[in-house]
């Protein structure tokens, strides 16, 4: 398959100071590639250089098989769209007018712009002024602007940084779908390892001033990810830190449907209780979640775990 973009022995940086060197990469149509690396490792610099906003120190960048410097700015923007980390918010432009800027090098086309806004779930923002948008909304508008360019390659610098958790998932899923449907190459830098590992076909990891490529799982198993982030070798990027739980003082005989189990156990541990042998705690889903605790034949029923735990603590103290 022909690569959309290829970098050969690329060094990027400022002046003579190279930040990332010996970059060899290929981006293929229909694929989402995540660019990972800790803060300050040079993710944005790599993206800016690939985009042509700054000159490489060394090496070549080929866009559709031709050196990127041989394209005029407008030719380049028809092949390559981008939303970088500076998200300008000029006064007096609506979201749709901002997206229409993406048609700068193409025929103006309002339908294409509305389509791009719809792709980013931002159609309802079309008439709002940019100065009225939240950071997350502005971010989706900027991605829509890049999509309105109808590019073959999309470069996004932290496209999820200001979004709420469900929307992060939503935006990445849509980008992955778009990549597949339109044979679009997507290269995005991202801090959320969990999402990166879930939605990307391939990861590029900046580690020790150079670039390692591999499938997400491979980078975890080889320990490359742990090394790049300065973590112990066995570090699991998907695990979240546990809260500091108080000492355990009691057990309940937990009978709980599976989807709720994780959350109920967390709630119990927060108050010093673990599942085990003890009073029977039954959890059912009828008119919301119902907790019923069998205390020596006396049945306590509540709809909130907190209330139940309050009663338990009181019984324990008494």
């Amino acid at each position: 398959m022909r690569s959309t973009m290829r970098a050969i022995d690329l060094s990027v940086g400022y002046g003579v100071r190279s930040v990332v060197s010996k970059i060899n990469l290929d981006l293929y149509p229909g694929e989402v590639v995540s660019l990972l690396g800790p803060n300050g490792s040079g993710k944005s610099t790599v993206l800016r250089t690939l985009l042509g906003l700054q000159n490489p120190i060394q090496g070549d960048i080929l866009l559709m098989g031709r050196p990127v410097r041989s394209y005029s700015p407008s030719q380049r923007s028809r092949l390559m769209g981008a939303a970088m980390s500076d998200r300008p918010r000029p006064w007096g432009l609506t979201a749709l007018e901002m997206v229409e800027q993406g048609r700068f090098s193409r025929q103006p086309d309002e339908v294409a712009c509305l389509n791009a806004l719809r792709d980013m779930d931002a159609l309802d923002l079309s008439d709002r002024f940019l100065t009225e948008l939240s950071d997350g909304e502005l971010q989706r508008v900027h991605i829509a602007r890049a999509l309105a360019q109808e590019p073959s390659l999309l470069l996004l610098d932290e496209p999820t940084s200001f979004l709420d958790q469900p929307r992060r998932v939503e935006v990445l899923r849509r980008l992955a779908d778009l990549a597949r449907e339109r044979d679009l190459s997507v290269l995005l830098s991202i801090h959320d390892l969990d999402l990166a590992l879930t939605f990307s076909d391939r990861c590029l990891l900046i580690c020790g001033g150079t670039l390692t490529s591999g499938s997400p799982e491979d980078l975890v198993l080889s320990g490359a990810l742990a090394t790049a982030y300065g973590q112990p070798r066995g570090w699991d990027p998907l695990s979240h830190p546990e809260p500091d739980y108080p000492p355990v003082w009691g057990e309940v005989d937990l009978n709980c449907p599976k989807p709720l189990f994780r959350w109920v156990v967390r709630g119990l541990r927060r108050r010093g209780i673990v599942p085990g042998v003890g009073p029977a705690l039954k959890i059912e889903e009828v008119e919301g979640t119902m907790f019923s605790l069998d205390m020596d034949g006396k049945i306590l029923v509540t709809h909130r775990l907190d209330d139940l735990l309050d009663m338990l603590s009181e019984a324990h103290r008494g």
Binding site: P73, R78, D86, P88, S105
Partner: peptide, 18 residues
């Protein structure tokens, strides 16, 4: 001129010859 409202780097990404 409208493209310049986006700032120079953003204008460059939409294909403006800054």
């Amino acid at each position: 001129w409208d493209s310049f409202l986006l700032g120079e780097s953003c204008a460059a990404t939409v294909g403006a010859d800054v």
